Simulated assay, not measured.
Amino acid sequence: MKSLEGKIAVVTGGSSGIGLATAKRIVDEGAHVVITGRRENELKEAAAVIGKNVTTVVGDVSRLDDLDRLYAVVKEKHGHVDVLFANAGAGTIAPLAAATEAHFDQTFDVNVKGMFFTVQKALPLFKDGGSIILTSSVSNVKGLPGFTVYAASKAAVRNFARGWALELKDRKIRVNCLSPGAIDTPALATTTGLTPEQAEQAAAQFTSQIPMGRRGMPEEIAAAVVFLASDESSYITGIDLPVDGGWAQG
């Protein structure tokens, strides 16, 4: 029997990278998945890659109306949620001396406010005994110059998992945090504000600091998410699981 047979899962930030790889793996494990992202064309392409048992909803997690629309679709189509992978996130480089209010607000609106209300608004649909997985980052414990606002937002996510694991224990809903390290996705070149050359240099620098000597693949994050989503992790809640090739231990 597949580990998520018959489950209903929601994946935010599901149109590319870690979110897409995880949504595909969740379906491979027997679940139906609802994915959301900001760009309709990318979502359609992601659904084609996943191939079956997938519903797409265009939306921005920092907009509460969009979250309401997401869960209205989930309720209408499936009636409940068993697994939530709250994965949508954003991060651009800005040194302390140069960071703007807009940079700060955008980062926290998506990574903290968006995360908070993604989970809050899912609760009425959540089945007791379900699993919530939050995407944090190795940066929640590492000092990364230029990424301090992003790192602070991801440290907030890590603490959400601690508190929510206690708040939701009576419903037997487990809440865990997953912290990827440097993962080989397009995001480094497309969303951080780096030029292609700078992104390549950053990837090389990250790799030199990783004990395993390479960046991770989105499928390796997906495998960890499925573990935390399934009954294989039935005695695990409130943790931060680094999937980072040992980077956080250096």
Rank of each mutant, 00 (worst) to 15 (best):
K52M: 12
T237D: 06
Q249E: 13
A99E: 15
L125M: 08
F126M: 15
A94M: 04
D105H: 14
G37R: 10
I35W: 11
A199Q: 03
V81H: 02
L84R: 08
E5M: 04
N41W: 00
K7V: 00
L178D: 05
L125W: 11
T185L: 08
V110P: 07
A23T: 02
N111M: 03
G14Y: 10
L96K: 06
H78V: 14
T118N: 09
G30K: 05
A182R: 03
K77Q: 13
I183M: 05
I221E: 06
D240E: 14
V81N: 01
K44S: 14
T56I: 15
K113P: 15
Y150K: 10
T191R: 07
V74A: 06
L178Q: 03
V83S: 09
A182Y: 02
I26D: 00
L241H: 11
G143T: 06
L70E: 12
A151V: 00
A21T: 05
H103A: 12
T192L: 04
V112F: 01
V141F: 03
D109N: 15
T207D: 07
V81M: 01
N111G: 10
R214Y: 01
F108S: 04
I18P: 04
G130H: 05
G30V: 00
R171T: 01
I239L: 03
V225I: 08
G114P: 10
E76N: 13
L178V: 07
A31D: 09
D240V: 08
V11I: 03
N140M: 13
F108I: 14
P124E: 00
A165I: 03
S3K: 07
K113N: 08
T195K: 08
E45K: 13
G193Y: 12
A222K: 01
I93V: 13
A161T: 02
L123T: 07
F117K: 10
F104A: 08
V157Y: 15
I221V: 09
R215D: 01
G181D: 08
N140C: 13
Q209S: 11
V83M: 11
H80I: 00
K44A: 12
S233T: 05
G130E: 05
D66P: 11
F104T: 00
M217K: 14
T56M: 05
G91R: 08
V81G: 01
V149K: 02
T192G: 01
I26K: 06
V73N: 13
E42K: 15
T12M: 13
F104G: 10
D105Q: 13
K7W: 10
K44R: 13
Y150F: 07
D28E: 14
T185A: 06
L134Y: 01
G13W: 10
H103G: 08
A248G: 05
T185S: 08
M217E: 15
A199R: 02
P186N: 04
